[in-house]
Design a protein around this nucleic acid. Sequence first.
RNA 1: CAAGUAGACCGGGUGACCGCUCCUUCGCAGGAGGGAGAGGAAAGUCCGAACUCCACCGGGCAGGAUGCUGGGUAACACCCAGGAGGGGUGACCCUACGGAAAGUGCAACAGAAACAUACCGUCCCGACUGUUGUCGGGAUAAGGGUGAAAUGGCGAGGUAAGAGCUCACCGCGGUCCCGGUGACGGGACCGGCAGGGCAAACCCCAUCCGGAGCAAGACCAAAUAGAGGGACAUAAGGACGCCCGGCCUGUCCCCGGGUUGGUCGCAUGAUUCUUCCAGUAAUGGAAGAACAAGAUAGAUGGUCACCGUCCCGACUUUGUCGGGAUACAGAAUUCGGCUUACAGGUCUGCUUGGCUC
RNA 2: UGGGGAUUCGUCUAGCGGUAGGACAGCAGACUCUGGAUCUGCAUGGCCAGGUUCGAAUCCUGGAUCCCCAG
Length: 126
Amino acid sequence: MRGEQYLTKPQHFARVYGKGGSWASRYLVLRAFSKGLSLSRFGFSISRKVGNAVVRNRLKRWLREIMRAAPLKAGYDIVFIVRPAAAPLGYWDIRKGAMELLSRSRLLRAGRQPEAVVNVEADGEG
RNA sequence: CAAGUAGACCGGGUGACCGCUCCUUCGCAGGAGGGAGAGGAAAGUCCGAACUCCACCGGGCAGGAUGCUGGGUAACACCCAGGAGGGGUGACCCUACGGAAAGUGCAACAGAAACAUACCGUCCCGACUGUUGUCGGGAUAAGGGUGAAAUGGCGAGGUAAGAGCUCACCGCGGUCCCGGUGACGGGACCGGCAGGGCAAACCCCAUCCGGAGCAAGACCAAAUAGAGGGACAUAAGGACGCCCGGCCUGUCCCCGGGUUGGUCGCAUGAUUCUUCCAGUAAUGGAAGAACAAGAUAGAUGGUCACCGUCCCGACUUUGUCGGGAUACAGAAUUCGGCUUACAGGUCUGCUUGGCUC
RNA sequence: UGGGGAUUCGUCUAGCGGUAGGACAGCAGACUCUGGAUCUGCAUGGCCAGGUUCGAAUCCUGGAUCCCCAG
């Protein structure tokens, strides 16, 4: 994931929050907005209430890894907001929650079912 | 063996695949190969510095910091060694540890009194009374009681009763001598107790301190609109505040407009390791070797396999199998410290107690 | 990066070395046929750890949490 794939400016986040859709679970909130370009951009919003610097940085790395591996449709600005309840979870719980939100928002590419997402072992061995 | 005490250290390991950041080699380019990639606290931001800017220099006030002595250091509120006081059977530990015979203040309640004071008492004399006291005058600080604290302690002499009133020992103060760089220690003589606590109350004394901070600051590129308004030439400003002297300068405030890109600063440094020398030590010196993260919303992540440590359960023990756990915590200009957090573990010195030889 | 402030009962607050007070809320009683209102009484507290002092919410040191300001 390269630098141009990050959402950096506050205006970018404001546009996603203002115009995009919203899907939420107990641990994560997904905001997404189609801007019609070929490149997708990602942002991760993790409050200081979630935990200390180690916890927040780890969650951000996990989400970045999940986004790298996920079969996403192109051309979206996607923002993940982490809720404080997600702090004690492990990588696979976060991945399961994130993929569930992505499938609910229909951001995954056609031909892949949510069951395929849960079946992560096949992905790792390939 | 158990308990304790002081110090030093580790902070899971190996391999494979997919990713991230930087450096480097090759290539016109897409890209390919190679190398490096979090800590003992990176943390809190509590001190001290380096570095950079604020044209500049000096003096005073205010303010702040430190506070036994000697040493180390670029510097420090840090470190080492020592002294004194306190705690512990001991190894050892703790200490904001200058000044209360400069001044101002504070001490609730209790108590007679918390600065000069006699409540209960003790003793002497006189009067009245009549054998027990009352009243008046005086002496006294030994005893009681209050309190956190009561005007040196204890013993003997002494006395009407007492009292450093006198004496011995201890404490305190002073002078001299000796040892030590010094804090201080030891000894002799003298004084004869002269009120005590609090300075993390104000304060006094000694020493030190200009301010801001890498978003410091320098450069490149791009973009835009300064004939804007106000204050002041006996002025204003000169980077916390006030005053003074020199020196410098068209200076300050308000309103409006542009940029939110890149490069440097920025990784060779009070650096790290080894050996030797000086020093009780902190530390310093010399020689040799090494180069060891550098992001910019912020790189160190994911998966798999095997092993290590600890805990739990099952099986008949050595052991095997299954499950779980593996801390605190993430570099952001850089160093020296301090403080705080930390699963589990290793090593060394010493002390006390028990057992055995 | 630099600076400032706060923490006292369940909640909001006062007290600047000497028994921690008030309001609302809570509980009990009185009043009432019952409830409300009113009256009386009760219980409940110093963010944490050390230190100075005879004595600390107050003074000092270290830490924790929260809030605010400037660039």
